[in-house]
Design a protein around this nucleic acid. Structure first.
Lengths: 175, 175
DNA sequence: ATGTTATGTCAACCGTCCTGACCTAAATGC
DNA sequence: GCATTTAGGTCAGGACGGTTGACATAACAT
């Protein structure tokens, strides 16, 4: 008569929903999905190059921010990356051992470890940023009013408001 | 005379680089970093809600695409996510066990498993997409010429050219 | 002298990916 | 009808990048 008794056909919530979600101005599927795919390809560039060194994305991020602000202390790095020192530990050690970074005791506070890239680290970081910048440049050239400011403001607007000061501070060095 | 012999002070590559990278039109630090922070906050919204169910980002992605295209087969999902069936396996099982998805044998080819959301899965997926859409909407409202098309084209332009057909196909259902 | 701070480290765990090997059921080709 | 291929699932083992908790050390602060 009805289906097998071990499946509860009478529970409406266990029935398949056959239709796609209805269009809704509060559901921006295209941009949500484009953002996902765009970011995936944005980091895929770097992944390939990092693999040659046995590095992952964590190494990339550390390398990037230390290069961007040479002399950064460990605590600042943890704050930017929002990870724990336990998970930073091995990554930092590998980057030092491979000769991409060096740690120098703070001149005033000798408990601090100031992080600097070596020339080797600088070179790799620049190379990675260059790849990513080229992709961004290409994407901007493809839009009708090639308005870099709008893209910048859009991305900034995506950031959690409380975080924006931190990001602003990081970028204060470029005019 | 010179430093300790176990440190090679004479190797210029092991010396710290003290200065930030010089400005260079081929190095777009602001947009590279903004894209990183923007994406992090873009998914942070969803992470919190997913945690209540014991789900992670992999669950989110599966839930999203199955909801978007009900009736999708496993092979299509693997193709979109670019992961192996071994890593999809547990995620899919958990989503079925929790009653968010159902699998139905294909009507023509009964080897296939057609994936559908339940009403429960639909609800959760819509809720997640809604949060992300709100963030996007806010970011677009904050730019001067509120040009959604430009943002769409920019993100599309960030995608690897060979991947664009796949993404296009996924979005063909919304005009 | 005591307490706090900056950093590092050990241990155990989780989530998400991987490769390789193997299995079943169903479709397909001869 | 039988052999092969295909769709999907599963088991084993491993890597990476993250977590929490506990503890150690050195240096600064009072």
């Amino acid at each position: 008569m009805s289906g097998p008794t071990h499946i509860d056909d009478s529970d409406p919530d266990s029935q398949p929903v056959m239709v796609p979600p209805e269009p809704d101005e509060d559901l921006d599927f295209p941009l949500v999905e484009l953002f996902f795919f765009a970011y995936r390809d944005f980091i895929a560039d770097a992944d390939g190059m990092l693999e040659e060194y046995g590095f992952g994305r964590a190494h990339h991020r550390v390398l990037h921010f230390v290069n961007r602000r040479p002399g950064m202390v460990v605590a600042e790095l943890l704050d930017i990356l929002r990870i724990t020192k336990q998970s930073l530990g091995p990554v930092l050690r590998q980057l030092v051992e491979s000769g991409h970074l060096v740690q120098i005791a703070g001149p005033e506070d000798r408990r601090q470890r100031l992080l600097y890239p070596t020339q080797k680290g600088r070179n790799l970081s620049i190379q990675l940023t260059h790849m990513q910048s080229r992709r961004i440049k290409g994407a901007i050239e493809g839009i009708k009013n090639k308005d870099r400011e709008s893209i910048r403001d859009f991305l900034f607007g995506m950031i959690e408001p409380e975080e924006r000061d931190l990001v602003d501070g990081l970028m204060a060095q470029d005019q």
